[in-house]
Measured scan of single mutants.
Amino acid sequence: QKEELKEKAKEAVKRGNKDKARELLKRAGISEEEAKKIIKKIE
């Protein structure tokens, strides 16, 4: 489940939808700070 949400978040970032990505990562139980780092890494 968590990995699936991370994959979806990756796709969202690639489409330029960072808010959606952050939302998905939060749903995966990832903190706001972690989510920001992950999104930065994907960009």
Rank of each mutant, 00 (worst) to 15 (best):
Gln1Thr: 14
Gln1Leu: 14
Gln1Gly: 11
Gln1Asn: 13
Gln1His: 12
Gln1Asp: 13
Lys2Cys: 14
Lys2Trp: 14
Lys2Arg: 12
Lys2Pro: 10
Lys2Tyr: 14
Glu3His: 09
Glu3Lys: 08
Glu3Arg: 09
Glu4Val: 10
Glu4Met: 11
Leu5Gly: 01
Leu5Trp: 10
Leu5Ser: 04
Lys6His: 11
Lys6Tyr: 15
Lys6Glu: 10
Lys6Cys: 13
Lys6Asn: 06
Lys6Phe: 15
Glu7Gly: 06
Glu7Trp: 05
Glu7Val: 09
Lys8Phe: 05
Lys8Ala: 13
Ala9Pro: 01
Ala9Glu: 01
Ala9Tyr: 04
Ala9Val: 14
Ala9Ser: 02
Lys10Leu: 10
Lys10Val: 11
Lys10Glu: 10
Lys10His: 08
Lys10Asp: 04
Glu11Tyr: 00
Glu11His: 06
Glu11Ser: 06
Glu11Ala: 09
Ala12Lys: 01
Ala12Leu: 13
Ala12Thr: 03
Ala12Ile: 04
Ala12Glu: 12
Val13Asn: 02
Val13Ser: 02
Val13Tyr: 07
Val13Pro: 01
Val13Gln: 02
Val13Asp: 01
Lys14Asp: 05
Lys14Ser: 07
Lys14Pro: 02
Arg15Glu: 13
Arg15Asp: 12
Gly16Gln: 04
Gly16Asn: 04
Gly16Leu: 02
Gly16Arg: 03
Gly16Thr: 02
Gly16Tyr: 01
Asn17Trp: 10
Asn17Asp: 15
Asn17Ile: 04
Lys18Val: 14
Lys18Ala: 11
Lys18Arg: 09
Lys18Gly: 06
Asp19Thr: 09
Asp19Trp: 05
Lys20Trp: 14
Lys20Leu: 15
Lys20Pro: 01
Ala21Arg: 00
Ala21Asn: 01
Ala21Pro: 00
Ala21Asp: 01
Arg22Phe: 15
Arg22Thr: 13
Arg22Leu: 15
Arg22His: 13
Glu23Asn: 04
Glu23Phe: 00
Glu23Leu: 02
Leu24Ala: 04
Leu25Gln: 06
Leu25Tyr: 02
Leu25Glu: 13
Leu25Ala: 06
Leu25Met: 02
Leu25Cys: 13
Lys26Pro: 15
Lys26Glu: 15
Arg27Ser: 14
Arg27Cys: 15
Arg27Asn: 14
Arg27Leu: 14
Ala28Tyr: 03
Ala28Glu: 02
Ala28Gly: 04
Gly29His: 00
Gly29Ile: 00
Gly29Phe: 00
Gly29Cys: 07
Gly29Pro: 00
Gly29Asp: 03
Ile30Glu: 05
Ile30Tyr: 15
Ile30Asp: 01
Ile30Pro: 00
Ile30Gly: 00
Ile30Asn: 02
Ser31His: 05
Ser31Leu: 05
Glu32Thr: 07
Glu32Pro: 07
Glu32Phe: 07
Glu32Ala: 10
Glu33Thr: 07
Glu33Phe: 04
Glu34Trp: 03
Glu34Met: 08
Glu34Gln: 07
Glu34Asn: 06
Glu34His: 05
Ala35Ile: 15
Ala35Lys: 01
Ala35Phe: 05
Ala35His: 01
Ala35Leu: 08
Lys36Ser: 14
Lys36Gly: 10
Lys36Thr: 14
Lys37Gln: 13
Lys37Leu: 10
Lys37Phe: 04
Ile38Pro: 00
Ile38Gln: 03
Ile38Ala: 01
Ile38Leu: 09
Ile39Asn: 00
Ile39Phe: 02
Ile39Gly: 00
Ile39Asp: 00
Ile39Arg: 00
Lys40Tyr: 10
Lys40Thr: 11
Lys41Arg: 12
Lys41Glu: 15
Lys41Phe: 12
Lys41Asp: 14
Lys41Ala: 14
Ile42Tyr: 12
Ile42Lys: 03
Glu43Arg: 05
Glu43Tyr: 07
Glu43Asn: 05
Glu43Ala: 08
